[in-house]
């Protein structure tokens, strides 16, 4: 204990903030890819695929992220797989984000009016062509605002990765606090930093939603 908050501490926090951004990006990209597969699996013509993906979504959504992180880090270690905090946090967040994005995107795909599917079917397009050329371009427009909104959740949830020893913004704050013991000042800095990362995204999401509202007529069946 001792000393005052100085530039080195702030640099350390800044580095943590960068890792928060990095982990968020990993979670978003990994979760986005897996989530896209989940979304497609949830509306698969094969019942077994639909059920398997639904079970996955329910399991993940019914489990605290904290527990998933512990399972990823300590669970894998217990069965002899030594993983780094970054790998454990990245993999856990990917699984977590995939379940939520998969559900969000499934909803968006299904909200494209059914007659659009039928019109595409009537033109003899294959299922893949219907998806890629007719449904997904419309679903992406619908999906953009809620996806950006969910990114805010991802950024905040990366703070839980601190429990497996991954030094992101939260963990770096804890470390600095351990040497300075000025919790209020340090956690206030942390809070403001999270807010500075999340608020622009929230604003962006709101703006997108407003724009969607104006353009809604383009999504109606006729």
């Amino acid at each position: 204990m001792g000393g005052h908050l100085n530039i080195n501490h702030l640099m350390f926090l800044g580095q943590g903030a960068l890792w928060t951004v990095g982990l968020s990006v990993i979670a978003l990209i990994g979760g986005g890819i897996v989530g896209f597969v989940i979304a497609l699996a949830r509306i698969s013509p094969l019942k077994s695929v639909r059920i398997a993906s639904a079970v996955y979504v329910q399991l993940i959504q019914g489990t605290p992220l904290l527990v998933i992180l512990f399972l990823g880090y300590f669970g894998l270690a217990a069965i002899g797989l030594k993983v780094s905090p970054l790998a454990a946090a990245g993999a856990s967040l990917t699984l977590y984000v995939a379940a939520y994005l998969g559900e969000i995107w499934r909803g968006c795909i299904q909200s494209v009016p059914k007659p659009q599917w039928e019109a595409a079917e009537g033109l003899a397009l294959s299922r893949t062509q219907r998806m890629t050329k007719v449904i997904l371009p419309q679903a992406i427009r619908i999906a953009t605002p809620p996806t950006v909104g969910f990114m805010v959740q991802i950024i905040k949830n990366t703070s839980l990765a601190s429990v497996v020893g991954f030094v992101e913004l939260m963990r770096s704050g804890q470390i600095v606090n351990n040497s300075l013991f000025e919790p209020f000042a340090i956690y206030a800095i942390i809070a403001v930093t999270y807010f500075a990362m999340c608020y622009p995204l929230s604003l962006f999401s709101q703006k997108l939603e407003q724009r969607m509202g104006r353009g809604r007529s383009t999504l109606a069946p006729a």
Binding site: P115, Q116, E118, A119, A120, G122, Q138, L219, P221
Partner: peptide
């Protein structure tokens, strides 16, 4: 086939 609600692709 042509439908009552036209079903052109809006995008």
């Amino acid at each position: 086939i042509v439908f009552q609600s036209y079903n052109l692709f809006p995008h």
